[in-house]
Write a protein that binds this DNA or RNA. Structure first.
Lengths: 138, 138
DNA sequence: GTTGACCCTGGACTTAACTCCAATGTTATG
DNA sequence: CATAACATTGGAGTTAAGTCCAGGGTCAAC
């Protein structure tokens, strides 16, 4: 498959694909004419990238994971690093969730307030609410 | 209060303070000598900024909110815009939460797998898991 | 055999939210 | 009064993850 088809299959721009290759996330082979050829392996790679990105991994982290995978020799160390990476990610995700839940409550409360307001002077009320949060949250 | 004290009171770099001023989020007055003077008003402003940032508002959005506040004349329109902004924020927050909850489950599952693995070849198992997600999630 | 649709590369640009720097001015302290 | 610790400005640099572009090669179709 050529880059154009590959890109449109996964709804990604060709430039992004080339960027991923430059970052060693994708390893297409080359045809005689220099064109990239995307095979089954590349499909696996891009699917892995897409999912990991969805899970909140950065490009650098994905690089690391792929590196670990290819570097099968030092298995215990690799395993530990991998597990560590996932642990960190779990922690971050948990933090995010509780933070956003908190935030959601607050924003909803503020919105209620804003909806009830007839004249905008009362936006000061909103401000007061928000400033109230400052004491508690930080 | 001078910029240094103000900055360290709120654990922010002086450059960041100056940046906020340039973006019209903060409006310190000037002393004779050109130094910025941060008063009560500025404290309110920075606290508002900090909380709104914590809630996930971008600088641009905070600018908008402040603009709405100062522009009290067109009250109904302002109110609507404000409420809209908060509505959008609520939707985004809800999305985020359910997404991260989903992601958390997945990452935890993968981590379990990785923890159990004795030799790293089995990282392929992880990969298979992750690729399995690709079908479902997208 | 020449269009038009692709592909290649290297490098510059983008956005957000800072962060750093140089050159220079001001002030508090010993 | 000299020195260090602050302040000022304009402008450049940073990071992540792309995105765009110019200048060129390749290929299939009419």
């Amino acid at each position: 498959m050529k880059i154009g088809d590959f890109a449109s299959k996964y709804q990604i721009q060709t430039d992004t694909i080339r960027y991923y290759e430059k970052e060693n996330l994708l390893t297409p082979i080359r045809r005689e004419n220099g064109y990239r050829e995307f095979d089954e392996e590349c499909e696996k790679q891009i699917q892995l990238i897409i999912v990991l990105k969805q899970l909140g991994f950065t490009i650098k982290e994905i690089q690391q994971l792929l590196l670990l995978r290819d570097n099968k020799s030092i298995s215990t160390e690799c395993k530990d690093t991998t597990v560590l990476l996932f642990d960190q990610k779990i922690m971050k995700l948990e933090e995010r969730i509780s933070f956003y839940q908190q935030a959601l409550k607050v924003v909803q409360a503020i919105k209620e307030l804003a909806s009830d307001v007839k004249y905008l002077e009362n936006i000061d009320d909103i401000e007061k609410q928000v400033l109230g949060l400052f004491q508690k949250d930080l």
